[in-house]
Design a protein around this nucleic acid. Structure first.
Length: 487
RNA sequence: GGCGCGUUCGUCUAGCGGUUCAGGACGCUGCCCUCUCAAGGCAGAGAUCACGGGUUCGAAUCCCGUACGCGCUACCA
């Protein structure tokens, strides 16, 4: 067999946002394509006109691009096999069903919804399989022509020959066998003239020279229908890989109701794309070692379809949060400062009014204390606005009778610093304490309270260094005043 | 109901017949570090490998059955 470059595809339907499960499917396809030097194709499956959501396709593409899953061919990036939007390929599908009809592998069906419902009810009441009874297969060509001429609505069905076995070789699950007697005569073309997923998917995968169909496990039961179609057309069947599902905490298929499922939701919450990609890559796959931290290029190197798990994986937020923190800390201070500035701007906190050096100091002191950039202005607002109140518990614990005097002593030492540095601030404080004959803690805690309003946070001298001498002195004086009134 | 897939700590997982009375990670608990909070380091609790039969000298690992879970069963994808 001549080894050709693999071609894989991600084929979402534009019915809303990009689902986190869809992102993982897209990611696995992408990783496989990049690793093998193959192509990653994006195809929009918009054959259900009822569920179509305007702008969804554009949104899908934007989200994919945000996540770094750039496609080689797709809408707006035409390759040799377009168009890549199924609604623009209608004539292709009808040409192909014509061939099927000629060979009696497909047939027109004029049955009404009422007859179909009644048939199903009857079969169900007898405890039988609910399969179409091939009623319209017996129509003569004349009858078909007449009905079409009369304008009767029709669908085109696949003519499944019963009593055979269809074997599927799945890259993840091995051989899976189905009995064709249990396979329904699937509708291929709907009465609105649009193809169903089953037909469009097979025709497009073949025409677009897709070598590996990597998709969610929910497609496994309909794969024999697809194989039958490939055989009817006389086409080679691609390799299949059915991915395990992503699950809710109660182990049902990941859905809204039990949390966020849209990639946009996670993006809006402040998750880094690096963390999200890293996390979902590990949901159902691992390299066989203990490694947990990956960048995209490393995933591309390590990924393998063979090592994808068979069972579903619960989407566990806690671990995602941890990974987000890991990726956050792995970023440079300059990058983090940029992200912080963006966050401040986005929340109306005038991020552009701050100097780069200041923002760098803020992220340096905060990056090990947060999981999200968003948390910095919330948890450490004192970097941006001076405290208006002081944490009650901290005041009780750290603010003693001799505190104001000690603080004043520190202020005069600060004032004496001509070129303040972090070490300078610290030496000044320690010498103040020493001269007063008290431990440094007697001064550190009230100073922290005075300049931040709270009793926990980064190292005190890091905060002072970021705020600067003048602001620090101002805040200490302000605290002496305010807390004196209280006591 | 039928068909299909799955089943190792709470969760993500390693394990592909023996060196594993099951290893790592998240989370949890404790200790160390320390001006606080984190981060980090160390330690700990946590899995009769769903259950029952086989096969084998030997099974989490192979086979069969059962149970449970999930998916599919549309002119939705």
């Amino acid at each position: 067999m001549i080894s050709e470059k693999p071609r894989v595809r991600f084929a979402p339907s534009p019915t809303g946002y990009l689902h986190i499960g869809g992102l993982r499917t897209a990611l696995y396809n992408f990783l496989f394509a990049k690793q093998t030097g193959g192509s990653f194709v994006l195809r929009i499956e918009d054959t259900d006109r009822a569920r179509l959501v305007e702008g969804a396709a554009e949104n899908l593409i934007a989200t994919l691009e945000w996540a770094g899953l750039h496609f080689d061919e797709g809408p707006g990036r035409e390759g040799d096999f377009g168009p890549y939007t199924q609604s623009e390929r209608l004539s292709i599908y009808s040409e192909h069903t014509d061939k099927l009809i000629k060979n009696r592998d497909a047939y027109y069906c004029f049955c009404t919804k009422e007859r179909l419902d009644a048939l199903r009810d009857e079969q169900r009441s007898r405890g039988e399989q609910t399969l179409y009874d091939k009623h319209c297969l017996n129509l003569t060509d004349e009858e078909v022509k007449r009905s079409i001429a009369e304008g009767k609505p029709f669908v085109i069905r696949l003519n499944v020959k019963h009593g055979k076995k269809v074997k599927i070789h799945d890259l993840i699950r091995g051989v899976v066998e189905f009995d064709t007697s249990l396979i329904d005569d699937q509708v291929l073309i709907k009465s609105d003239g649009f193809p169903t997923y089953h037909l469009a998917n097979v025709v497009d995968d073949h025409l677009m020279k897709i070598t590996h169909t990597i998709r969610g496990e929910e497609w496994l039961p309909s794969t024999p229908k697809h194989v039958l179609l490939y055989e009817s057309f006389g086409w080679e069947v691609p390799q299949f890989a059915h991915l395990p599902l992503l699950l809710n905490p109660d182990r049902s298929k990941l859905s809204k109701r039990q949390g966020d499922v849209a990639v946009e939701d996670y993006r809006a919450k402040g998750y880094l794309k690096e963390a999200l990609i890293n996390f979902i890559a590990l949901l159902g796959w691992n390299a066989g070692d203990d490694r947990e931290f990956y960048y995209m290029d490393e995933l591309i190197k390590s990924f393998s379809i063979e090592r994808i798990n068979k069972s579903g994986a619960v989407f566990n937020l806690e671990k995602l949060d941890w990974l987000n923190a890991e990726h956050l800390r792995a970023k440079s201070d300059e990058e983090l400062a940029r992200l912080l500035r963006e966050e401040l701007n986005a929340t109306g906190c005038a991020g552009n009014s701050y100097e780069e050096a200041f923002l760098v100091k803020v992220v340096q002191s905060m990056k090990e204390r947060v999981k999200f950039i968003k948390e910095i202005p919330v948890n450490a607002g004192y970097f941006f606005t001076s405290p208006s109140e002081y944490e009650e518990k901290g005041v009780q614990k750290a603010w003693k009778e001799d505190t104001p005097a000690l603080l004043k002593g520190y202020i005069s030492k600060l004032n004496a610093l001509s070129e303040p540095t972090k070490e300078g601030y610290e030496n000044a404080l320690r010498s103040t304490a020493e001269e007063a004959g008290v431990g440094a803690g007697k001064l550190i805690h009230p100073v922290r309270l005075a300049i931040s309003g709270v009793s926990s946070g980064p190292g005190l001298f890091d905060i002072i260094d970021a705020l600067g001498k003048e602001e620090t002195i101002r805040r200490i004086n302000s605290a002496i005043e305010k807390l004196a009134v209280k006591q």
